[in-house]
Each structure stands twice: as C-alpha cells, then as structure tokens.
Design a protein around this nucleic acid. Sequence first.
DNA 1: AGCCGTTCTTGATCCATATCAAGTGGACGT
DNA 2: ACGTCCACTTGATATGGATCAAGAACGGCT
Lengths: 187, 187
Amino acid sequence: MELVRRTIERYVPLRDTEWQRIAPHWTEHAFSRGAFVSAVGQVEQRFYIVKSGVQRLSFPHDGQDICVGFAYDGSWSGDYASFVTRKPGQFDVVAITDSVLLGIRHEDLQRLYSELPIMERFGRLIMEELLVGRGTREIEQLSLSAEDRYDRLVARSPHLLQLVPQKDIASYLRMTPETFSRLRRKR
Amino acid sequence: MELVRRTIERYVPLRDTEWQRIAPHWTEHAFSRGAFVSAVGQVEQRFYIVKSGVQRLSFPHDGQDICVGFAYDGSWSGDYASFVTRKPGQFDVVAITDSVLLGIRHEDLQRLYSELPIMERFGRLIMEELLVGRGTREIEQLSLSAEDRYDRLVARSPHLLQLVPQKDIASYLRMTPETFSRLRRKR
DNA sequence: AGCCGTTCTTGATCCATATCAAGTGGACGT
DNA sequence: ACGTCCACTTGATATGGATCAAGAACGGCT
C-alpha cells in the first residue's frame, strides 16, 4: 500500500490527512498466470498500479490476439479507456505471470476527485502522461523498422524477453511468430 | 470567444464569475493555408480550439510527412505532447486551409488550474477524451485492412475528402497515394 | 488566359512479410 | 517418467501493397 502513496507522490505532494482519505479505497488483487484482469465487453471496474507481475494488453482479431502493450512493476494496468468511459472495453488484460495489483474503484476515485483537488490534479497528470506515451509509441511504430523496434524493446525492457512468450512480443512488434523467429536467428 | 465557453461547458458547468476569470486568457490566431501552427523541435506555446479551418498533425520521416491526425471545427489543435511536457515537440501542425484558432498559453492555463478546481477537472476530462480517441484509432489501424480503413473514413468523415489533399489522407490511412487512388476507383 | 509545379491516375513489376505445412523441443500435470 | 499440449523453428509458396514510371488533370500565380 505504501507503493500507492509513493506512486501518487511522484505526481503531487500529499499531506498525511489527505493520504488517510485516499488509502482506504485501494485494495490488493492477486491474479494467477493466465487470469483475466479485464476482458473485452466488460466495463473496467478499477484503475490499477502493478505491485508485481507482468500483464498483457491486447484485443482479439480473427481468432488472434493483437498485443498493444505490457504493464509491469510500478506502471499502470487495466483498460483505461473503459474505466474512463464506463463503457464495455475493447481490450483484454491478461496476467502473463502471477501478478498482484493495487486497484481503486471508479466511484471511489470520482469521490476523491471531488473531495480532494490534489487528486483531481493527480488524475490529470496521469492522463497527460499516458497520452504523451501513446504519442511517442505511435511515432516509434510508424518510423522504426521491426528490427529497430525489437532493439528498442530489448534496450528498454530486457526483462520482458524472459517473462513474455515470444508470440506476444511478435504480435506487439506487428509481425507473425515465424517472422520474429527468423529475425532472431539473424542475430 | 463564445465558442471557448461553449466548448468548456461541454465538459464542466461554468458560473459567470468563473468564465470572467477564464475568458481574458484566450486569444485568436489566424493562419493562412500552408502556415505552421507548430513545428518539430519547438515547444508548443498554446493549446488551441479550432474556430475554423483544417489542420494536419504529422511528423517527418525520410523526407516524407507521416500524417497522424486532422483537427477541424470544434476540435482541439496543436502539439499536445509538447504543450504538456514543455519539451521540443516531435510533430508539425500545418494549416491545410486558412484557419482561425483560439489559444491559451501554458502558463495561463496552469494558473487557471490552480485557481479554479473546475478547470483542473476540465483539463483531466480533455486528456481522458484524447486518450480514449487514441486507443480507438490504434485498434482500427491494427485490425482493419487498407480497404476497410478507407471505407471507415469515408463513412465517418466524408467532409475530409473535400478539404484535405488525398496524399495526406493516404498517409493518414497508412498507404501510398497510388493505393489510395486505386481504392477510390473501385467504388 | 496561360504557364508551371504539384497532385492524381493508371499500368507494370517487385518484395517483404504473411500464410501454409511439417517437424522439434520444452513445460506441466498426473 | 510419460504423454499431451503449446510454443517455437524451418522451409515452400502466395500476396497485398510498395515502388517505379509516365501521362493527365488540377490549381495557384503573374
């Protein structure tokens, strides 16, 4: 739970009195490898911080899962779009390894937004960060070759290669597992 | 200027006293066809609402401009990522038609965020909306074929076809102008 | 109006990567 | 330890869209 406080304080300062209002709304949730944190068609109930484990964000398409991201220690997890819109989501979030997530319910977060201006600011800053991240990723997807994207992933998140099946990484890099396998061999 | 008030009120209610604090910070900016609203490498000074005209959001890549979006009447414009991070941006924003934008400077918006909680909420809601839009677009880019992406654009934003050069739309749809031209012919 | 550069069209060809197919290896449960 | 199920590899073939090329139409400027 201390992780939640540290995480929020990366964005805004928190007084003890404020933290005491915030803390009770966060709860711990364990997911075994393979379990769905969120599923297509369901409204995302919580916004999560990853305490441990790796999760895959993907959506199904012609019987395949197309992977659009991973979440791991210290990052956000869940289907933000569904959480924010309160509409059925388009993404699956699956625990790739046993995972522990810290989550807050939508209604509780909304109440905190109204009660604590500092939380509203926290929410804005997170959304800004996620939006900036998407922009960066979009540029990378469009301007880097498959091999460069692989290198970038290795450089930035080498641990993923041990934890995540190659077929998921291949999908994340927009190629078939066959192409991924052939690229690897070239190294 | 009334447009700014109406736009903000799509997200949050505004009292007259609040609006009187907000209004003075917005200014009108005219751009002729072809003019740069924002350019790669510069820090975005303002966050804009489009009063009239169409702008293209793109980034340069081996001598080509890759188009990632358009802005038009009532939508947001500018390089949000640079505006938010205060770092040199990676995108060009170019007026495709003569345009009039309503803009607020970063420092002024920050002051409003601190002074008016309702504005902080407004900021959060915009960022949420932009983030959700990106997610939707990402799914479409990845799951639809070139032909389907074309059909979808025609169905949803037919007006763009009149306003924007086909090469820009082609780039936005991730295909060459030749492929775009052939798809058109087929219909 | 007439000129010139840009955008758009159309056809021929090419290539990176997908798809199909078949075999190998490793992890996990009983 | 064994069998089963996936994940991964490797080779052969197919294909969507890119690239190259060349002409037509459009639009902005003097």
